[in-house]
Amino acid sequence: MADRLFALCALIAGGIYTYVAFAVIKAPFQYDPLGPETWPQVLAIVFLLCSLYILVRPDPIRLALARSVWLRLLILVFMLLGYAELYEPLGFVVSTALFCSLFSVMLGANRLHAIAFGCATGIIGYGICDFLLGLNLPEGLLAPLL
């Protein structure tokens, strides 16, 4: 069932890809026999054939996950999105400390341990990357201090 659903989505996405390959991509002028559209056209056909095959002969896969697992994965995705959005505004140290504390609490860590772990990761991580490895990380809120 899950496979069929996936194949349907793939057909729709593949359909859009195919439409663009055949109708939209055009070079204003070209010297070579193959333009920018030929290769995507070949790929589109292979992809559509694969999707059709899966639609007709799907594997018996069931995405049987408990509701609590789905919920946690959803929270994980939201935390990741939040981490990405706050990465530059808050800076590496603060956003990492927040993200790591919340994440480890969700995975069952005790709150005090989680906060200690989060702060340590933020500060030590910044220290190693910035001073030792010379990587470029956002300073954010702590810019005046760093």
Binding site: L80, Y83, A84, Y87, F92, T96, F99, C100, F103, S104, L107, A109, F117, G118, T121, G125, C129, L135, L137
Partner: peptide, 12 residues
């Protein structure tokens, strides 16, 4: 503790 560190490394 391991899982958050993977995310942090990927972001860095």
């Amino acid at each position: 503790y391991l899982s958050p560190l993977i995310a942090v490394l990927a972001f860095i």
